[in-house]
Design a binder for these strands. Structure first.
Length: 617
DNA sequence: GACGTACCTG
DNA sequence: CAGGTACGTC
């Protein structure tokens, strides 16, 4: 006996989806910062030289970058260190041999190509040098912000490390140590930040330079032009790869350094705020990366979170910029890693890219995206890489497949199989889950956590959510229950990870089922009256009834399910109710159906156990 | 305010 | 079937 009344039901649609571990979400903030800081080591304009050299002496270049990082880390001022490295590097660059980036060119074309490449390189380097010296490259606002950050630093520490008293006590006894570590930490982050920014600019300039160059050659020898074009493309690709690799290596080294210095960069410490970026924020994304707030802002805001909302200057609510969200969207945290899993340290090449904020590939993806499409592209266009396609996550397939669907477009064409993640596209959060757009970030994360394949696309298709089979099953369940409680839904859709969205969708399904059901009832009741049936006892519902056929066609289209007799009884009772109400002119009351609903909702039956196990009945 | 529901619309 | 809205309940 299931007497679930509507008002008794579904009061807990979001049950079980609140347990988000928001601090984990902070990891990317920090990690992005780290990247940014790493980039700073190249902000001297010599990155081109380094990268070009790296194609020949990859290892050596890495060591250099490490050295730069180290020296800049120790230096008190990033600017200072920058200039020193800059001069050093420009000398090296001047003395650097011609680049042998030839990637399969004919021997004849090699010399002109080298000359050409040298010229190119000179040009690019010049651009970079100008960039590095320009106000945009390192605005004063940054240092001001940095000063503010430093002032705020103790607050953060107080929050995250055992309270103010402890912290102060610890620093008073070992103040230099504390300050050094904190400064070092922030310096590293700052460097990564700058590095990332520079990388974008670099990519932009690269494309600019190479694009400009093609027309020049059109007048010359056609074959040479084609060769050059191919070579140019190859060079670009090589440079891109090198850049990406260099940055990743840099970050690697930074992390190594960080861990070797004993800095506590755990998410709890670095990103203690539970109030991560809200879903609203994510939903605002959509502009190009260029339109997004500058990386400086992103970083600063991320830092504000690190400081645990220590001031009004950068409250989490300010974090409405889309870029970081767009970037992070595909990197949501898998369910299994809600809390503890993500808190592992982040060796860069270790964890799988599972839409996991803390995974390395996420960041390298950003870089690759930058390198491939330039800094003007929308990060929302980053493809959601399914685990199976993740080159660094062989174990990713172990994640639970049960996922959710926000606004899943269930179509009959999908019946019988789960859509593949590969079909997923870019992410736009505002399509995530209507009508619950105001989803909190924790919930959003929760959804992602439960859905390794969650991919939010403008075309909207979240894999592994409510499938057509789920719909079919829900329809069959309607034969037993017209007003299923959320608990019933959860019980009978065990392969679905529930959250507000899923629950709402399922509830909406049943609402639609009821709507159709009651429409049919009213229609046939009125028809009976029109047909002159004067006694309600003359109205029955059998399997031969037209009414039943209509209902069966709707809920059991394949007719492969034996509709329970009880449903026929309920249908008959409903029809009688409608007939009586209409025949007594109660339908003049706008809310005349309410009384009927009240009766019908008490006629729910228990759903057979088989429904629990069968995903496709 | 969140939630569930009915109703209307496309 | 889903989106939007209004209403009632908690």
């Amino acid at each position: 006996m299931n007497l679930s009344l509507p008002d008794q039901n579904m009061h807990n649609p979001s049950e079980g989806c609140i347990e988000d571990d928001k601090p984990d979400l902070m990891i990317p903030c920090f990690r992005r910062n780290m990247y940014d800081e790493s980039l700073a080591s190249y902000s001297n304009g010599s990155i081109i030289s380094q990268l070009l050299r790296k194609t020949i002496h990859n290892k050596r270049a890495l060591d250099e970058s490490h050295f730069y990082l180290s020296s800049s880390t120790i230096a008190d001022s990033g600017q200072e260190d920058q200039s020193s490295v800059s001069s050093k590097d420009s000398t090296a660059e001047a003395a650097s041999p011609s680049c042998h980036l030839s990637t399969g060119a004919s021997p004849d074309g090699e010399r002109p190509l080298n000359d050409h490449l040298q010229a190119k390189r000179a040009r690019v380097e010049n651009i970079i040098r100008v960039m590095a010296g320009s106000p945009n490259s390192r605005p004063h606002g940054d240092s001001e912000r940095e000063n503010k950050r430093k002032q705020r630093l103790p607050q953060h520490q107080e929050h995250s490390v055992g309270g103010p008293a402890n912290r102060r006590a610890g620093c008073s006894s070992n103040g230099d140590n504390c300050n050094t570590k904190d400064e070092e930490c922030h310096k590293l982050k700052e460097q990564l930040h700058s590095m990332q920014r520079l990388l974008r600019q670099l990519q932009e300039k690269f494309l600019q330079v190479y694009n400009q160059e093609d027309p020049e050659l059109e007048d010359s020898d056609e074959t040479g032009y084609l060769v050059h074009q191919r070579e140019s493309q190859n060079l670009q690709d090589a440079l891109k790869q090198e850049l990406s690799r260099a940055v990743n290596d840099c970050v690697d080294k930074v992390f190594q350094k960080v861990s070797s210095t004993g800095l506590d960069l755990s998410p709890q410490r670095m990103c203690p705020s539970p109030d991560m970026q809200g879903a609203e924020r994510k939903s605002q994304q959509g502009g190009s990366a260029q339109e997004q707030p500058h990386p400086e802002e992103t970083t600063a805001k991320a830092r504000s979170l690190e400081y645990y909302e220590s001031t009004e200057a950068q409250s989490p609510q300010d974090q409405t910029e889309a870029l970081s969200l767009v970037v992070r969207k595909p990197a949501m945290t898998p369910l299994s890693s809600v809390a503890p899993t993500v808190k592992r340290p982040y060796p860069l090449h270790q964890p799988p890219f599972q839409f996991n904020y803390s995974t390395p590939l996420h960041d390298s993806q950003i870089l690759e995206h930058l390198l491939k499409y330039g800094p003007h592209t929308n990060f929302g266009g980053l493809p959601c890489m399914p685990p199976s396609m993740d080159r660094t996550s062989p174990d990713s397939v172990d994640l639970p497949w049960d996922t959710i669907t926000m606004r899943s477009k269930v179509t009959s064409s999908h019946l019988g199989h789960h859509p593949r993640p590969a079909a997923l596209g870019p992410v736009t959060v505002d399509n995530l889950c209507l009508p619950h757009v105001k989803m909190e970030c924790g919930e959003l994360q929760n959804m992602a956590e439960r859905n390794p394949y969650i991919c939010l696309n403008s075309n909207v298709h979240i894999q592994e959510g409510l499938t057509p089979n789920h719909l079919k099953k829900a329809k069959l369940m309607f034969f037993y229950t017209r007003y299923p409680s959320s608990n019933v839904l959860k019980t009978f859709f065990p392969d679905v990870k529930f959250n507000r969205c899923i629950t709402s969708q399922l509830i909406k399904w049943f609402s639609n089922f009821r709507e159709f059901y009651y429409i049919q009832m009213e229609k046939f009741a009125r028809q009976a009256i029109v047909d002159g049936i004067s006694d309600v006892k003359d109205i029955s519902v059998s399997r031969d009834s037209e009414l039943f056929r209509a209902l069966n066609m709707h809920y059991n289209k394949a007719n492969d399910f034996q509709v329970p007799d009880r449903f026929l009884e309920v249908a008959e009772i409903t029809l009688h109710e409608f007939y009586n109400a209409i025949s007594t002119a109660k339908d003049s009351d706008p809310s005349w159906k309410k009384a009927i609903y009240k009766v019908i909702c008490k006629l729910d039956s228990d759903v057979p156990e088989e429904f629990k196990t069968s995903s496709c009945l």
